[in-house]
Every structure is written in C-alpha cells, then in structure tokens.
C-alpha cells in the first residue's frame, strides 16, 4: 500500500481483504444449506444487512424461528461496533458532502474501516471519497458473490474448513492491526502495545460475564479510555 488515492490504487488495496470474504462466504454457504435458505434470501441478507457475524446470527435465529424483534435487537447489538467505527472514520470526511458521507457510511465494514485507517496512516490522514467508495463497492459485490458461490458450493463441499480459508479473516485483522501499529507515527509504539494488552485482558474478563459481541464493544471502549489515560497522564 502507498499514499496514492486513485480508483486504481483502491482496487489494488482492497484485494487482500477479499480472501476473507471468500472464506466467510464458503463457511456461510454450509450454514445456509443446513438452514435451507434459498439464493434469494441469501442475496437479500447480503445486500440489505451486509454484515458477517450478524448474518450468521440471523440465519441461526431463522432456524429456531425466533421473534422478529429478538433478531433485530441481536443484530443491533452485534453491529453496534459500527457506531464506533463510523464515528471514528467520519473524522476524515468532515469536509466532503453529506451525500458522500452517507454513501461511505452505507457500505463501511470492519474490513474497509481497517483498510481505510491503514491507508490514512500512510497519507497523513487524508482519504478521498473516490478511494473509499471504490474499496467499499468492490467489497460489497465480492461479498455477495462469495455468499452465492458459497451457498452453491455448500451442496458439494462437505468440509470447506479443510482449505484454511476460514482463517483468512483472522489473518487479515492480524495483518491490518500490525500495519496500523507500525504505520501510525503520531503515536508511540509503547502506547499502542499498552492499548492492545488492555483490550486483551478486558476481552478475557468480560468474556466470562457477557456475550462476545458486548464484550468486544466494551473492551474497545476500555482500550480507548486506557490509551487516553496513559497518553495524558504519563
């Protein structure tokens, strides 16, 4: 990745994250098969909800025929981390039009957020709607295609995990986290490591008492507060 913000660079930048989508799509295909969801339902889930872990949760709640309100509430809780990510990312687009802001927000994901933050650390904080929208739209299309292919392949592949593709998402976040740490020159590496340590501990402790999604949200907030504290009062 470099500091270029053209559409062409965006296409190149987004490629590594697409492996993760293919892995998730294949894994989901098998789940959708067991839930007997049709291609149309999967397509609507991908294009309207467009959120990985929420789509898994919704599907399993479909199987257990949960009430609509319970499914919507779970989805909101699982995706509430988007509020933090969007607030954080919106700082970079304050001077762009409201329409552009809505466009970027509509298709932002964990992956394009992480990618965008990485990019911003290379461009001294500058990001353009052209770059971000390109990454977002490619991710959106590949996401949907991966799920459809996954659903079709789900009939054939009995054990999609044996390809190791399911680990692509985790590997991607490990990579983006490391690149983010070393890329952000405005902040001391030591502070970043302290934030990481704090989040790991918080996840572990909160994980005992809360469901993983709420633990993730609270651990993130604790990590941010801790980071601010060590930076301000050292």
């Amino acid at each position: 990745m470099n500091d270029d913000l053209t559409i062409k660079t965006a296409i190149k930048d987004v490629i590594p994250t697409l492996f993760g989508y293919i892995g998730v799509g294949l894994a989901y295909g098998v789940v959708a098969q067991t839930a007997h969801l049709g291609i149309l339902t999967i397509t609507l889930l991908c294009l309207i909800v467009y959120a990985g872990s929420a789509q898994f949760a919704i599907t399993s709640m479909f199987v257990s025929a949960s009430p609509i309100s319970a499914i919507i509430l779970s989805t909101f809780l699982i995706n509430s981390r988007m509020i933090l990510m969007s607030t954080s990312m919106a700082q970079h687009f304050k001077h762009d039009s409201l329409r552009q802001n809505i466009a970027i927000g509509t298709l932002i994901t964990d992956e394009t957020f992480a990618l965008g933050m990485n990019k911003a650390s290379m461009t001294k904080g500058k990001l353009t709607p052209a770059w971000f929208n390109t990454a977002n739209v490619i991710a959106y299309i590949v996401w949907w295609l991966a799920y459809v292919v996954g659903a079709l392949a789900g009939k054939l592949i009995t054990n999609p995990e044996s390809f190791g593709l399911d680990f692509a998402v985790v590997a991607m976040f490990i990579g983006l986290l490391y690149l983010q740490m070393i890329g952000d020159r405005r902040r001391k590496l030591r502070v970043q490591l302290e934030v990481i340590l704090l989040v790991v501990i918080a996840m572990f402790v909160l994980g005992r008492f809360l469901n993983p999604e709420i633990a993730l949200l609270l651990a993130t907030i604790i990590g941010c507060l801790g980071g601010m504290a060590v930076e301000e009062w050292r």
Binding site: S88, A114, F173, L177, R187, F204, G223, M228
Partner: peptide, 23 residues
C-alpha cells in the same frame, strides 16, 4: 478517544477469534 478505536477494535476482533467464549 476515537483515535484509539482502530487499534482497540482490531485487537478485540482478533481476540474474539482466538478465544472460545462461553458465558
């Protein structure tokens, strides 16, 4: 506070995948 979100949330996402949670 928000400037810490990227590192914090990516760490949490990695940890979520490396630990097995059971309330």
């Amino acid at each position: 506070l928000l400037s810490f979100v990227p590192v914090a949330i990516m760490t949490a996402l990695v940890v979520q995948n490396i630990l097995i949670f059971k309330t």
